[in-house]
Design a protein around this nucleic acid. Structure first.
Lengths: 346, 346
DNA sequence: CTGAAAGCGCTAACAT
DNA sequence: ATGTTAGCGCTTTCAG
């Protein structure tokens, strides 16, 4: 280690003067340009230069300044994950955990970093101005509601990839979705084939495509078998909302023998209510969920559910965005398949 | 809206040329400096200038470029939250949700943004170089383990506030902790006063101060009452870990009549095991948890637990860091009190 | 293969 | 109160 580097190391917290490219250049006996080439992996550098620059970088502990770099190059190597929900919702639903893991997994093989915005706790609309200030190269938006108009102002500035069909789908939109209609259809059919005829559903919010599409699948299945809708209630994609919705269903006197619940989290709430009412699952009422998130196996009886590949969806969204940023031309729409997971609740 | 602004609005996604301070200055008929003053809220601007600049900004939809701004000012107005855990752990424990909410709550009243790093899924050590590249003005570190040495390299570059006593505490460290020793002591005493004498404990990881301190409190209480340690097992602060630990306790033949579990999440696992073994809670074995997180009320019986103010801890950490960044001199150490919450498990 | 030079968009003295 | 002037640290032509 050079004396320079040693002196630097000895300084106190937060005081360290950051090493600049200029100092590295001086130490290596080359110009700024050459250092820059090395840092950015250009091939047009002689082995000797590469060697001395690399050594200087290590000795001085050089890390390029991000602000300077993105000002000059007009790229930030950062992408935003925008979740228009509040913190409670975000942390309460394992779906988001899987999405974030998937995105991280893809990003860790790139030189991009992820900036997370839980945007509903955001009074001043910091998220929008952050993105519009050029702080990220692109954005991923999940859990998009009809009312989330700020997304449009983001999409006019950087490329956006949506998780799930956007609320107002346009030709040029990029998104990665699960085949919700099909999944809900199959789930409902499974209930029917198990002999149930009085099938209710607890839906997600109707201002979200996932809520709408899963309801559609349920309806298609009932129609195909010529069955009536016993009850349809919105459970808001939360456990408590699911419980409330189930209470409403019961209050109507509908007496379902099965319920298709559009998320596992809501199904947990449903289960609680049913059990409290003395109804046995699946004997009296069968339940099928949607997600196959960890909650599916954390309840008793364990949930039969329609698995959606959320981790893969996260990975795929990241891949599409990275392709876009690299100037490639990914497909606009990717639809992932769901899969029935049979456990104990049907 | 000016024709300029209209033209801009009509451009396609990701194509929009960003408005610069120069264009705003031209439109407002003033110099860059004046626009900068207005943007930064300087008082030294005439009412007329303020008015015309403000209008120009709105018309052109100007948002200052973050990279340029931080390059010039040497501040980023961003802080990092660094969590040396993996994604599963991060999303699985409601403690983090509360911490993040608290931080966000404080930050939303400032002009800082939060960058979250779930640092254990980070092979290339991007977190460290991100911070060292000058991307943030300061950092908050929670869930610090003995092995997390990369934190030192971060703390040498920006001010750091720790959530919980740092693993190797130094005079100059700033941190916000809960009185874990006291909380654990009181919890254990509550068990003793309820008539239990064979008290086991499920601990957090011993490489984390919270794990160590809560064990200490348990031991202090037993010592004060001259009671023996029936069993001490590490539950790793997870539900599954807690379950495994409880199985180990039972396997020793210890036959506890109570167990102090160092987190609610672990207590859930403990409860599952006890119930599966046909042991009644609290009749056969009493359980007291730690946290008072949402899981405490989501299990049956609901957990008696030692509440720790995690949201407040998050807020406080943010406040301390903001004070530091503003050049103020906050206290180095803040200790928050815990509170016994009596429910059904003791 | 390498260096010189011109910015990227903004802030912050310094003048006026 | 406002404008002028230097940079902030880096990338990127452009020459050579």
């Amino acid at each position: 280690m050079s004396t320079d580097a040693m002196r630097r190391t000895q300084r106190g917290a937060g005081t360290a003067h950051a090493v600049t490219i200029e100092e590295v250049a001086a130490a290596a006996g080359v110009s700024r340009s050459t250092v820059s080439r090395v840092v950015n992996g250009s091939t047009a550098v002689s082995p000797e230069a590469l060697e001395s620059v690399t050594r200087a970088i290590n000795e001085l502990n050089y890390v390029p300044n991000r602000a300077a770099r993105s000002l000059a190059s007009q790229k930030t190597h950062a992408i935003a994950l925008i979740v228009p929900e509040d913190t409670t919702r975000f942390f309460g639903d394992p779906f988001f955990a899987a999405i974030v893991s998937g995105i991280n997994s893809r990003l860790s093989r790139s030189d991009y970093v992820l900036n997370l915005f839980i945007a509903s706790d955001d009074p001043g609309d910091k998220t929008t101005s952050y993105v519009r200030s050029g702080a990220v190269d692109g954005a991923i938006v999940v859990s998009h509601h009809t009312s989330d108009t700020f997304i449009d102002r983001i999409a006019s500035v950087v490329p956006v990839v949506y998780g799930g069909r956007p609320v107002r789908e346009r030709e040029r939109d990029y998104y990665v979705d699960v085949d919700n209609v099909r999944g809900a259809y199959d789930a409902t059919v499974y209930l029917i084939e198990s002999g149930r005829r009085r099938i209710a559903t607890i839906t997600g919010p109707r201002d979200m495509p996932a809520g709408v599409d899963r309801l559609q699948g349920y309806r298609d299945a009932l129609a195909a078998w010529d069955l009536d809708e016993i009850a349809v209630e919105d459970g808001n994609f939360t456990a408590d909302g699911g419980a409330d919705a189930m209470r409403r269903v019961l209050a109507t006197g509908a007496q379902p023998d099965a319920v298709f619940v559009a998320s596992d989290l809501m199904a947990r709430g449903v289960l609680t209510v049913l059990t409290a009412e003395g109804l046995r699952v699946p004997d009296d009422v069968a339940i099928i969920g949607f997600d196959d998130s960890p909650v599916a196996t954390s309840v008793t009886p364990q949930l039969t559910t329609m698995r959606q590949p959320s981790f893969a969806q996260g990975e795929r969204m990241a891949t599409v965005l990275l392709d876009l940023l690299a100037g490639r031309h990914p497909r606009h729409v990717t639809i992932l398949e769901t899969e029935l997971v049979i456990r104990e609740s049907v």
